[in-house]
Structure formats: C-alpha cells, structure tokens
C-alpha cells in the first residue's frame, strides 16, 4: 500500500521533471509551473474522490491530473502542442481539462475555479447525485474575492464543495505571511460557517482522512468543508524562477520533509527492501520517458483548425 503511494508520488515527480527537461530542451514552449514537493496532497485527496466527483485545479495542476487518472502521454502531448494532447494542444500547461476523468480543468486565474466548483456541487444537489466538487487552490488564492464568494455561497446553500488550500507558504513569489495578518488561513472558512482543518500535507494519512471526511460530508448532504494542507514546493514558482526570495537553508529543510523523502524514510524504517523502494522511482521515470517519447512523435496541432470549437 505504502509502496503504491510512493509509486503514485514518483509518477507525478517524474512527470514534472520530464516536463522541466522538455521545456529547457525546447519541445515545450512557454511558461510552466511545477508542483515538485506537493505530490502528497494531490495523491491523498484524489484517492478519496469518486469517479463521479468533479475536481477543479489550478495552473500548478499537472500532478492533480495524473492523480485523477489522466494519461501522462496525453499531458506531455498537450504541453508540446500536439494534436494528441488531452485538449488537442489548445489548453497548454496551465489550462487543460479532461472531464472524462473528472478533471474539470486547470486555471491560471487564481481562485476562479472555486465558484465553478460551487456550481458543480449545486448540480449534484439538484440532480440528486450528491456528486461532490473539489476545488484546490494555493495560499495566495485565499485573498481572492472569488474564493470568499464561493465559500459563502457553498456555506449558505449547504453545498458539497471540498475546498483544499495547498499552503506552500508562497503567494506566487512572496511569503503568504507578509500578505495576511492571520496566518491560520482555515479561519477564513470557519468564519463563514464551514468546518475547517489544518493538516500536515506531507502526511498522506492526514490528507486521506481529512479528504475522506469532507467527501463523506458532501455526499451526505452536510455541506462544504475546508482543508488547509501545509506543503512546500521544492522548485521555483515557474521554470526559470531564480528563487531569490527563499531564505538560506529553507530549501534544505524542505527537502528533508517533502513527501517522497518522508515516505521513503518510513518505508526503509519499516524494513521494506531498498531495491523495492528504488524500483518505484525507476519505474515512474521509465513510464514518463516512454510517454514523452511517444508524444514527441505526434504531429503538432494544425493552425488551420485554430477557430474550431470556439462555439458549440
């Protein structure tokens, strides 16, 4: 079980690292935001979503897509502008979606997915399906009006929205503590009448438990929940970020507590053979190499089709 978790997290890490390579080598063009270090939140939260539930992610959403079951080959193809991309190369790194996998899209407008998730939860109430809607956003998004609007909307109407705040300590490139007077972000939710918890996002068990309770509450018609998951990104805000804002020693400390390092230590301490642990990383990297190579061979999206699907 724990080895499966390690493999799931390595798949995301290996995908992101391969994306970084492809961005630096040329096949991927434009801005890309990676989520290295935050894998446990996506893996733990998505493990508790049912196929019918809807997930609304952010531009740092590749890992959430993988955790939701979107094939990496289609993600690589999307980022490389290939016709075989999950959105035919029209979405790109920050805007792809795969509703057939319950992945209703990334979003580069910070916080904009929150009210959309409210609508999906309202639909789940109206059609009797009680399908939950999860919206994930960063700590910076807590300061967006749309997030406050969405939280109140969900609370007032008792809608099954799971608000997941990935607190990686940085509002883009500025410490979140400089941007709020109250560092406990979950209090925004409790003030609106939403049950809220703060958890160690590097601990898969905590992520699972908090999400399970939230999805159960949504499915039972008990309304929204808020989870503030403390995490860290161990790479820049975007590929090319010089990260001058990081205090000395921070990254070194983060590399010790980040979820893959943490789970690896736990497995070894449990007596799992080193070979089994290392196989997770090797297998994930092989899978991503294969997927990326296949995507690289696919044709680019045809500019002549640029006006297709603008309207239904």
């Amino acid at each position: 079980m724990k080895l499966d978790d390690l493999l799931s997290m390595w798949r995301i890490r290996a995908l992101e690292e391969k994306i970084r390579d492809l961005r630096l080598e040329g096949p991927i063009v434009g801005s890309v935001h990676l989520a290295n270090g935050q894998e446990s939140v996506a893996v733990g939260a998505c493990s508790q979503l049912r196929p019918q539930d809807a997930l609304y992610a952010t531009y740092r959403g590749h890992g959430w897509a993988v955790a939701r079951g979107v094939p990496p080959r289609e993600i690589f193809a999307e980022l490389m502008g290939r016709v075989t991309g999950v959105n035919g190369g029209r979405g790109g790194s920050a805007h792809f979606s795969a509703p057939q996998h319950g992945f209703h899209g990334e979003n580069s407008i910070v916080g904009a997915g929150a009210p959309i998730a409210v609508g999906a939860a309202l639909a789940g109430k109206y059609d009797g399906s009680r399908r939950a809607a999860m919206t994930v956003f960063g700590d910076g998004a807590i300061n967006q009006g749309a997030v406050a609007e969405a939280m109140n909307f969900a609370a007032a109407l008792g809608l099954g929205v799971v608000f997941v705040c990935e607190n990686n300590r940085y509002s883009e490139l500025t410490p979140i503590d400089d941007m709020v007077a109250e560092p406990d972000l979950s209090r925004r939710a409790s003030a609106l009448g939403i049950p809220a918890v703060r958890i160690d996002g590097n601990d898969l068990a905590q992520v699972r438990t908090a999400t399970r309770l939230a999805v159960e509450a949504a499915a039972a018609g008990r309304g929204p929940s808020f989870i503030e998951a403390h995490t860290q990104r161990i790479v820049g805000h975007y590929i090319g970020d010089s990260e001058q804002y990081r205090p000395a020693g921070e990254l070194e400390r983060d590399l010790v507590v980040e979820p893959i390092a943490r789970l690896t230590r736990e497995l070894l301490a449990d007596g799992v053979p080193t070979e089994s642990v290392e196989r997770c990383e090797r297998r994930a990297r092989e899978e991503m190499e294969t997927a990326a190579a296949a995507a690289l061979r696919d044709p680019l999206a045809d500019p002549a089709t640029a006006k297709e699907h603008l309207y239904a």
């Binding site: 809807a54 409210v118 609508g119 999906a120 309202l122 639909a123 399908r131 809607a133 749309a146 909307f153």
Partner: peptide
C-alpha cells in the same frame, strides 16, 4: 443568490458544465 456577481457567474459555469441551462 448571495450578492456576489463573480460567485453567481462561476456557479452558473459549474451548473452548465454539469448539464443545466442556467
């Protein structure tokens, strides 16, 4: 709805994505 236009439109987007015609 609450007095929150971004929330209203966003909620309508979610409803429309789930098969309603808001």
């Amino acid at each position: 709805s609450p007095l929150a236009e971004s929330g209203i439109v966003g909620t309508a987007v979610g409803l429309a994505m789930r098969g309603y015609r808001p």
